[in-house]
Design a binder for these strands. Structure first.
Lengths: 209, 209, 209, 209
DNA sequence: CGCTAATCGAGACGGTACGTCTAGTCTTGGC
DNA sequence: GCCAAGACTAGACGTACCGTCTCGATTAGCG
C-alpha cells in the first residue's frame, strides 16, 4: 500500500473532543455525555469522532491518561525517617484526587465498568494496571524503608488493598471523601501489619494464598 | 371522600417483575435490563411497571431489599472465644455474596450510582444506610467481645471501612473476588487495631504491642 | 344522587352520560370525546358506561336521536301556493341545523363513518335511513303539490339528492355553511326539474335506473 | 461558513412510505393506518418518517397530490357539440374515482376533516382548493361552450356544487357510489340551469349573493 | 501543478428503548 | 346486584441517541 498522504489528523480536533467530553461530564454527568453532544460542543461532525474513537468511554479513557497519572504519583519522602506521615500524605493525595474533575472521570469509568464488561476490560488492562504497578513500586519502597528489609510483593499487594480499599470504599460506596481520621488510621494499620510480618520465606500460614 | 376500594396490587406481578429484572441483569448485564425487556419477560404490560416503579433502578433497588439483607446478616458466633474466625467468616460471606446474582445487583447499582446522582441518593439513603447500621451493630458487638469493653462507634466505623474496603476495592476496582488470604489479613488487622486502641478517655495507645 | 332502586338502569346516569358526551364534543371536538373523559365528566365509573354502550359512537348516536329529529322535520307549508319558498325554507333549516351542536354531532358521525365501517353501518341503518324516509315523504308531498300530480319515488330520491347534496357538499367538503344563494338556486333547480319530468310510466330513458 | 452538503432525501423511501400508507388504508381502513405500521410496511425507520411528515394525515395528503389530480382532470371534449355527454362523463369519472384506492383516501381525509380542524385546514387549503380551481375552469369552459357566452364565476361555483353535491352526498352520507341515472339527471339539471340563466348584468335577484 | 487519498462537516438512515397515552376488560368492596 | 375506584393488558404515540452511511468540499504531499 503506497501511502499517498492527504491531510493529517487534526490535533486541535482531538483536544476539542477531549475537552468537550470532560466539560460535559462535569456539567451534566456521565449520562449527559453523548457522542452527539460532544460533536456539537466540539464543533465537529459525528463521523469525525467515530473515525478516531469507538465510544465515549474511549474518549474518557484518553482524558484519564492525560490527566490522572501525575496527581497520583508517589513522591519521594522529604524526610526518610517518617514513613507513616509519607503514607498518610499519599493517601490524602489519592482522596483529594477523587474530588477533582479528573477523579470524577475515574470514578465514572469505574462505575461504568460495573455495567459494561468491555469498559471494565479496557480500564483494567490500561490505566488501572499501570497505576497499580506504580502503586506497588511506591508502597513497596516505602515499606522497605520502614521495615529495613525487602517486602514480599504479594504482601505488598494485600497491604495496598488495605490502604486504598477504605478510600475507594468511602468514595464509591458511601459517596463521600475519605476523612483524615480514616486515612491516619489506615496508614498506621498498614505499617503496623508490615512491621509484624515475617521475613519472606518464613511466612505464617495465614499469609499463604 | 369515602375510600371506595378497587382491586389491590398484585403481589405475583410484583415478584414477576423483580425476578425478570434480576434474570436479565445476570443474563445480559445492566444495559440489557430495559423496562421493555422486563415487561416482556415478566409477561406484564409496560404501563403496569410504570405504575409502581419510576425506573429500572427502582426495580433493582427493590430486589436488593428482598434478596440482600439475609445473606449479609451477621451471625451470632457459635464459639464466643474465636472472634477472628468469626470476622473472617463474615467477610467471606460478603465476598461470596458479591459473586452471586444479588451481589451483582448491588455492584451494578453502586456502579450506576457513580453515573447518576439520583441513583446514588436512593441507594445510599435506602439499602446502604440500613446495611451499614446492621454492620456497625454486628462489628461493634464482635469487637466488644474481643476486647472485653465497649468500642467507640466512630472507631467501629473506621474499622468497618478497613474491613469492607479491601473487599469492595477488589470487586469494584480490580474486578475480581477478594481472595481468602486478603480476608484473613484484613480480619487480623482490624482486630489488632481494635485491641490496641485505648479505652475511651484512658490515654493514648503506644506503638508497642 | 340517591338512586337506590336496585338492579334498574339509572335514567339520571343515562342523561348525565349523553350530556357529558355532547358537551365534550362541542368543547373539545370529536377526538376530545373519550370514554374516560365522559366517565369523569359525568361522575360515573367507566364500567358503568361500558355496560350500556359499546363505544363513544353509540353514545353520540343516542344523542342524535334525541336532538336531531325535530329540527330536521318538514313543516307543512303555511302558504300552499309557494312551494319554492317552502323548499328554500326547509333547505335553510337543514343548513342552519348543521351549524348547531346537534348538527356538529351529525357531521362528526358522518365523518367518522368514513373511517370506520361499523359506525357507517349503525349510522346509515339507524338515524340516516329514518331521516331519509321523512325527507322523501316531505319532498314528495311538496313536489306533488307543485306539479299537481304524484311523483315517482325514485325521481323524488334523485331530486332529494340534488337538493341536499349541495348543502352537505359545502358542509363536509368545503367546510362552510351553505349560502342562501346556493339554497335558492338549488330549490329552483329541483322544482324546475320536477315540473319538466314526464308522468310516471312515460319516463325518458335517462331516468331509468 | 461554507455550506457543506450531505446526502439527499431518498425518493424511493418517499414512494415506499406513500405506498405503504395507501395500501394500509385499503386493507385495514383509516384506523389501521399507523405511523408504526407504515414504517414496518415500508421497511423504514419511524424517525425517517417523522423527519418528513408530521402525521399520517400529512402522508395521506401527499398521496392525494400524487394520485388524485390526473383521474379528476377535465378532458377536452372530443365532440364540442355534446356538452351534456361530456359533463355526464366527467361526473362519472368523479364517481368512479371515489371507488378507487385514491378516492378512498380522499373520502377518509374528508371524513377525518370533520373530526380534526387541522386536517380540515390542510385539506381545504391544499388539495381541495386546487381541485376546485381546476373544476371551476373545466366546468366554466364547458358551460361557455354550451351557452355560447361566458358564465359568471359565482354562478359556475353554485352549479359546480349542484353537480358535485349529489355525488359526494351519496358517497359520504349514503355510503354508496352515485348511480348513472343520478349523474345524468344532475348533468341535465346543471346545463338547463346554465341555459336559463340571464346574461351577466341582467341577473335575477335570487342569483345575487 | 495536478492527481489522489485522506480528513472533515452535514445530515439521512435503520434501529432500540424511552416514557406517555387511551382504550377496553377485569377485580374488589361499599352500599 | 349496581356502582365507584382503579389495576391491568395492549399497543401506538412522538422523542432521543445510537452507530453507519453517503455526499460533496477541502487539504496535503507524491509524482
Amino acid at each position: 500500500m503506497v501511502s499517498r498522504t492527504g491531510p493529517k489528523r487534526s490535533e486541535s480536533i482531538r483536544r476539542a473532543v477531549l475537552d468537550a467530553a470532560d466539560d460535559l461530564l462535569v456539567e451534566r454527568g456521565f449520562s449527559g455525555v453523548t457522542m452527539e453532544g460532544i460533536a456539537v460542543r466540539a464543533g465537529v461532525a459525528k463521523q469525525t469522532i467515530y473515525r478516531w474513537w469507538k465510544s465515549k468511554v474511549d474518549i474518557l479513557l484518553d482524558t484519564l491518561v492525560d490527566d490522572a497519572e501525575q496527581p497520583l504519583a508517589w513522591r519521594p519522602g522529604s524526610s526518610p525517617a517518617a514513613p507513616e506521615e509519607e503514607l498518610t500524605d499519599q493517601l490524602g493525595r489519592v482522596a483529594a484526587f477523587l474530588q477533582e474533575p479528573a477523579g470524577q472521570v475515574l470514578l465514572s469509568l469505574i462505575g461504568h465498568a460495573q455495567l459494561d464488561p468491555e469498559t471494565a476490560a479496557k480500564l483494567r488492562d490500561g490505566f488501572l494496571r499501570e497505576q497499580r504497578e506504580r502503586d506497588l513500586a511506591g508502597l513497596g519502597a516505602l515499606l522497605a524503608r520502614h521495615t529495613g528489609r525487602p517486602v514480599d510483593e504479594r504482601l505488598t499487594g494485600r497491604l495496598l488493598d488495605a490502604a486504598l480499599g477504605p478510600i475507594f470504599h468511602q468514595a464509591l460506596v458511601l459517596g463521600r471523601p475519605a476523612d483524615p481520621a480514616t486515612l491516619a488510621t489506615t496508614a498506621r494499620l498498614v505499617l503496623d501489619a508490615a512491621g509484624r510480618e515475617p521475613v519472606p520465606g518464613a511466612g505464617r500460614s495465614s499469609d499463604a494464598e
